[in-house]
């Protein structure tokens, strides 16, 4: 998977704005060649929407709109200027669209095809197989920002809080927090090499590299936490850990199953494997009355509540559960009680 991902990355970057012509070699091998005479953006969108629909590709219209908008230099179809919609496309633009659409036919997520996506107002580079941030997680960041700015004492964050993120992936959570909290510092850890590289790259692109320390680390190996002790104690621990129940994994869409790193999703039998590791070890790094914020499965608040009760030695209390925009209990605020 890794090798293939790297190949794709190279391919996509070779097809960038300047290197569009290099893409020709591939396009000739692709099916669904763009009919001649279809030259404007709107016509191309209709064409590819029909092709995607026929081949059972989910979000057919959205996918073709994002691809065409991207090639024309816009983020969304809605933000394209009307002049661009009717203007005939250049030959290399047509080829580029063809190329990107062929990846979609192979069920590649649009975020990987475009090589970038937006999270909480930031544009982040996206590279397979690093986990693609979901919109729910924007709400987790919102909640933390709300608590830190409105009730700094209640979450145990004074001035600019020192934050630890476990499983940083593309860096979405850490970087969006840093961009909104100019006094803050973040320690971001992940066990995947690709994630560490991507977080580095996104931090550089957003010029936030000076306030983030990115450490390759597997939190399930107990001795590893010792590496973090010199950087602590921290005010906050935040994580969107793998929380999918193992038995649910095979039901995930091909976009997820064949492209995203499964270890970023699979949380074991009850989706709690990584969560319990985080909870068991966080007290060692947290300041007194420091907080943990987690994104979880809707079944987890109850499971985690009773798990914490069975571990009074950790001195952690589940203080709040928040629902996501679909009304599912999705986010947890767990606090370390004062000694």
């Amino acid at each position: 998977v890794k090798l293939w991902g790297r190949m794709l990355r190279a391919l996509i970057s070779a097809l960038g704005w300047r290197g569009g012509i290099q893409g020709c070699a591939f396009s000739s091998q692709q099916p669904h060649l763009t009919p001649t005479g279809l030259l404007s953006a709107t016509e191309l969108i209709s064409h590819w929407t029909a092709v995607f629909e026929k081949r059972g590709i989910p979000e057919a219209r959205e996918s073709s709109e994002y691809i065409v908008a991207h090639v024309l230099g816009a983020k969304t179809f809605q933000s394209l200027r009307p002049g661009l919609l009717t203007q005939p496309l250049t030959r290399w633009q047509l080829r580029y669209i063809q190329e990107l659409s062929s990846y979609r036919l192979q069920r590649m997520p649009v975020q990987y095809i475009l090589g970038e996506w937006d999270f909480h107002g930031l544009s982040l580079k996206m590279v397979p197989p690093v986990f693609i941030p979901r919109p729910e997680t924007e709400e987790l960041v919102e909640w933390v920002l709300e608590e830190v700015t409105q009730r700094p004492h209640a979450v145990g964050a004074h001035g600019g809080p020192l934050i630890l993120e476990v499983g940083c992936g593309s860096g979405a959570i850490s970087l969006s927090l840093l961009s909104k909290l100019p006094e803050s510092q973040v320690i971001a850890v992940d066990k995947g090499e690709a994630a560490i590289c991507l977080t580095h790259e996104n931090a550089q692109r957003l010029q936030l590299q000076d306030r983030i320390r990115i450490i390759p680390l597997d939190v399930t190996l107990e001795q590893n936490w010792a590496h973090l002790l010199p950087w602590g104690p921290v005010d906050l621990v935040i994580s969107n850990p793998p929380y999918v129940f193992h038995r649910d994994m095979e039901q995930l869409a091909p976009e997820i199953l064949s492209y995203e790193d499964p270890t970023a999703l699979d949380g074991g039998e009850e989706g709690m494997d990584i969560i319990t590791h985080i909870l068991a070890l966080a007290p060692r790094l947290l300041k007194d009355s420091g907080s943990i914020f987690l994104e979880v499965d809707p079944r987890h608040p109850e499971l985690i509540g009773s798990w914490l009760q069975s571990r009074p030695d950790l001195s952690l209390n589940l203080v709040a559960v928040r629902r996501d925009f679909c009304g599912r209990p999705r986010f947890l605020h767990i606090q370390r009680s004062e000694p």
């Binding site: 959205e62 919109p135 969107n240 793998p242 996501d324 599912r328």
Partner: peptide, 19 residues
């Protein structure tokens, strides 16, 4: 608040681009 994610498990289980 209506979004395309209203049905199903949401979160990590789904990857939609319809925002």
């Amino acid at each position: 608040i209506d979004t395309k994610r209203a049905s199903g498990a949401g979160g990590q289980h789904v990857n939609t681009t319809d925002s």
